[in-house]
């Protein structure tokens, strides 16, 4: 197992390498970081030249990539080049934003997987019941909904719920503006209270969409195992139905959804970008939008690299989970 993990990690290094090169080319050709300075009244050609040299833009693209790569590997991810702002350190900005977003993504995934499995199993066991039809139609509507619409609706009703709370003379619980900059303050109870209040709405909004997909997958997988021969054997042996469903069918039906959830992390991350935008969080979503709009190549590269690493790690997690859950798969 350890050997397998090491080998897989080694295989993903060239992918990350090639990916970073292509990403660098893409980012470099997507715009001109000097454009704003050029267009600024009072800036001279000499100013533009100086900035170009300062940013290393006078060198050929391969040399620039090499410079970027070597400093990236040594832990220096560069500084933001967006004009009119302090030269923020890319590593600090990206990792801070990533931390916020990752918590949201993880929470939404946990919520979506747990609910998806529960609903999927129940829908399969009670196939063609009212619950099954209800779950199926909810899932179809959820699939077809843009993430931001769910977020907007959830946010609005959250605010109304807050109004009800304040109407009863209590403090507002749900916040819709993201975690406080300096972290949560107060005693333990207070912190948990505020933490859940902050994360609850975005997590629901983000989890809702993946939940639909997971519940469909779980239902299909569960139906397949329920109709398989070894389940019939177990029933024939006279085992209690509950035991057959959970010990025999359920454990095998978990495999597809667990793998899917790990592989789906990139898509959930995309969803998180949107959800954060609706809630005005200061996470990866806001960072991406501002880095694209103000055209900030080092920031974009940092952004892309950290998400790429996340996806690679979760692909590995998917494989390992698959090996653990399905003993027929031997990793090695």
């Amino acid at each position: 197992m350890v050997r397998y993990i090491i080998r897989r990690l080694l295989v993903s290094i060239p992918i990350l390498g090639i990916g970073s090169f292509l990403a660098y080319l893409m980012v470099a050709s997507a715009g001109d970081p000097l454009a704003e300075l050029r267009g600024r009244p009072g800036s001279t050609e000499a100013d533009v030249q100086n900035l170009a040299i300062e940013l290393g833009l006078d060198k050929p693209i391969l040399a620039r990539y090499w410079d970027w790569l070597t400093s990236f590997l040594s832990g220096d991810w560069g500084t933001s080049v967006a004009l009119g702002q302090a030269r923020a350190d890319v590593f600090d900005r990206v990792t801070t934003a990533f931390g916020t977003t990752f918590k949201l993504v993880l929470g939404a995934e946990v919520l979506a997987v747990t609910l998806g499995i529960a609903v999927g199993v129940l829908a399969a066991v009670k196939q063609y019941s009212i619950f099954d039809y209800l779950a199926t139609s909810t899932a179809f509507v959820m699939f077809s909904m843009p993430v931001f619409c769910v977020a907007i609706v959830v946010k609005t009703y959250g605010i109304q719920f807050n109004n009800v709370l304040t109407g009863m003379g209590m403090d507002r619980w749900l916040t819709t503006a993201g975690p406080p900059v300096g972290g949560f303050k107060g005693d333990v109870f207070d912190q948990v209270w505020r933490y859940t209040g902050t994360f609850l709405l975005p997590t629901i909004a983000l989890g809702a969409i993946s939940f639909a997909a997971y519940s469909r997958f779980q239902r299909a997988a569960m139906l397949e195992t329920l109709s398989s021969d070894y389940v019939r054997t177990a029933h024939a042996k006279g085992l209690r139905p509950m035991r057959v469903i959970f010990r025999h069918a359920f454990r095998n039906a978990l495999i597809p959804v667990t793998t899917l959830a790990a592989l789906n992390i990139g898509a959930v991350f995309s969803g998180a970008i949107i959800t954060e935008t609706v809630f005005g969080w200061n996470g990866m979503g806001k960072l991406l939008v501002s880095a694209v709009q103000q055209f900030d190549p080092p920031m974009l590269m940092g952004w892309l690299m950290i998400t790429a690493i996340l996806v690679v790690v979760f692909n590995l997690v998917a494989d390992i989970l698959y090996g653990i859950l399905d003993p027929r798969i031997r990793l090695g």
Partner: peptide, 15 residues
């Protein structure tokens, strides 16, 4: 597939 599609499209469309 290694980077969220949304981010790739957002950057590439800028060109």
């Amino acid at each position: 597939l290694i980077v969220p599609q949304l981010a790739l499209v957002a950057i590439a469309a800028r060109a």
